[in-house]
Design a binder for these strands. Structure first.
Length: 541
DNA sequence: TGTTAATTCGG
DNA sequence: CGAATTAAC
């Protein structure tokens, strides 16, 4: 392999006396798994070929998390995953070192120092596509190259990497549907492989030089992670966005709902495809059914491979086709295809981010909307939305669910986002930020894409006049009011014939109304009027 | 992966 | 008052 040749050359340049034993480093970031981890499989293969040692490292970066509004539930999920990853790597004879490096600058310094003191000649990692991450990796590439250390990155986060799906004139698709067609076609004619990491045969398991803020046994990693989560929780409790949140409860809910580890994630995937995907096309829109795969939590931190998701889905599709003989129609299973298209949305928004890095600097994709739209910055209205006190049952139930559990159903993300941006006319960036602060599956590309879709400022976003009415959304997707009444038990006495009607709710909750005794606010905006205002705002000039 | 307004019909 | 239909935002 040509890369090996480079390593030998580089290394012999450095220290001839050590050249009999190379030392390589796998740097884990948002890819906390062993199975089908592109960079890990590659570096294991090369380490075995070169008879090299292989170490692994992960950095805990609290300052970076603060800057990126990482949620407590997601950090806790990462913290629960790391000891499991360490165990998995141990089975491959690889030691994982977890080290605190508050900022990305610290990561660069520490990684360079680690390479130097451990005589590491090659570092591998999987690509990250967000601005700061890209900048960090580019700086590091230069710095390591100065010391003749290789830094090789692999595309791993997407099923098909950014820039690989383009229009005929080689540009990025602006609309999802044609992107999706090309994406499906490309996948059908290409051979997607799962990368298996092989154990390092002759690894001496030399420990990396440790600082006092690092750990490399499962027990020590667990303790370090626990302390890090605790410190982050302390920091967040001083934060305005968390004033209304019981963080202890949120964490324990998230732990119950999302046990950590790649085995758990793979088990969920298999179970979902085998038993739960039937009727997905319809039931995925009903929040009370929990009919979605909920794999986003694992995909975001890389506890499961998106390619594995795609392959298992297409295998199920293939089985259906075979069992069905010559009936072509039912081979086109709507449920499985719909779920695959959700995987494609995930790729799409990552490709969009790679194409427009300015998104990371809070710019609207359609930047004319930044000039034109007079977004509101009404703190009180925003607080009502955040805390689930808008008087709009579906919106409030969804927000209280998010605050309590760190998760919100996808349709409800659209409903609450539309309500914030179209009914309250509040800047979508406020909502985007709050979602990142609370969601266990918070992910910059998907979250930004979703918010700009709702705000009608993004690629292929909802047209400005397509505005959801949260009462009719409740009627069609929470017909019996089950979800609403789960999170707003005070509304249990109200029949759905009133619950799903704004005018009737206003009347029933007002002074002399039928349900005047219920402690629940009257809607803070009148949807019909708000709709007219926001349409006028988009139409102006 | 939308909703409203205008209109008509029926209870 | 609600259901059904359809153009327009």
């Amino acid at each position: 392999m040509s890369k090996t040749a480079v390593a030998i050359k580089n290394n012999s340049h450095n220290k001839v006396e050590d050249s009999h034993q190379f030392h390589y480093l796998m740097w884990f970031r948002r890819d906390l798994r062993v199975h089908d981890n592109t960079a890990l499989a590659a570096i294991c293969e090369r380490a075995n070929e070169d008879n090299a040692q292989l170490s692994a490292v992960f950095f805990l970066t609290p300052e970076q998390w603060q800057a990126h509004d990482m949620s407590l539930t997601q950090l806790d999920h990462i913290a629960r995953t790391l000891p499991i990853l360490a165990e998995k790597l141990h089975q491959l004879n690889i030691i994982l070192t977890v080290q605190v490096c508050p900022s990305f600058t610290d990561c660069i310094v520490t990684l360079s120092a680690l390479c130097e003191s451990n005589n590491i000649s090659c570092v591998m990692a999987n690509h990250e596509y967000e601005g700061n991450e890209v900048a960090r990796d580019e700086l590091l590439t230069k710095q390591l190259a100065n010391n003749e250390i290789e830094f090789i990155r692999w595309h791993d986060q997407c099923i098909l990497p950014p820039k690989s799906i383009t229009t005929n004139d080689d540009s990025m698709y602006q609309v999802f549907t044609p992107f999706y067609k090309k994406w499906r076609h490309t996948l059908e004619v290409s051979d997607i492989q799962i990368h298996t990491a092989l154990a390092i045969i002759d690894n001496k398991q030399v420990n990396l030089t440790l600082s006092e803020h690092s750990a490399n046994t499962t027990q020590d990693i667990e303790a370090l992670c626990k302390k890090t989560v605790h410190d982050y929780q302390e920091y967040l409790q001083t934060h305005e966005s968390y004033q209304n949140i019981d963080t202890d409860k949120q964490i324990s809910q998230a732990r119950l709902a999302y046990p950590a580890g790649e085995a758990e994630a793979c088990h969920r995937l298999e179970h979902f495809i085998a038993d739960d995907i039937d009727n997905y096309d319809v039931s995925r829109d009903v929040p009370s059914l929990q009919a979605t795969s909920q794999l986003s939590t694992y995909l975001t931190i890389g506890a499961i491979s998106p390619r594995l998701c795609y392959l298992q889905a297409t295998q199920a599709l293939g089985k259906l086709r075979r069992n069905d003989g010559d009936n072509f129609d039912s081979g086109d299973n709507n449920d499985i295809n719909r779920w695959i298209s959700e995987l494609a949305w995930r790729d799409f928004y990552r490709h969009v981010l790679d194409y427009k890095p300015e998104l990371i600097r809070h710019q609207a994709y359609k930047y004319e909307t930044d000039k034109k739209i007079n977004w509101s910055y009404d703190e009180d209205a925003f607080a009502a939305w955040r805390e689930g006190k808008t008087g709009v049952p579906l919106v409030d139930a969804a927000m209280r669910c998010l605050n309590a559990t760190g998760f919100m159903h996808n349709r409800l993300r659209m409903v609450t986002a539309m309500f914030l941006t179209k009914d309250l006319l509040i800047d979508w960036r406020w909502g985007e930020r709050y979602f990142m602060q609370q969601l266990i599956d918070g992910d910059f590309a998907s979250n930004n894409g979703g918010w700009q879709w709702s705000a009608s400022t993004g690629t292929d976003s909802a047209p400005y006049f397509r505005i959801m009415n949260p009462f009719s959304q409740a009627k069609s997707h929470d017909t019996e009011g089950i979800f609403i009444k789960t999170w707003l038990p005070e509304l249990k006495p109200i029949p759905t014939s009133i619950l799903h009607r704004e005018d009737k709710m206003r009347k029933a909750l007002s002074k002399n109304g039928t349900f005047a005794d219920i402690d629940y606010p009257v809607p803070i905006v009148e949807h019909k009027l708000a709709r007219q205002l926001v349409i006028a705002e988009f139409k102006k000039e």
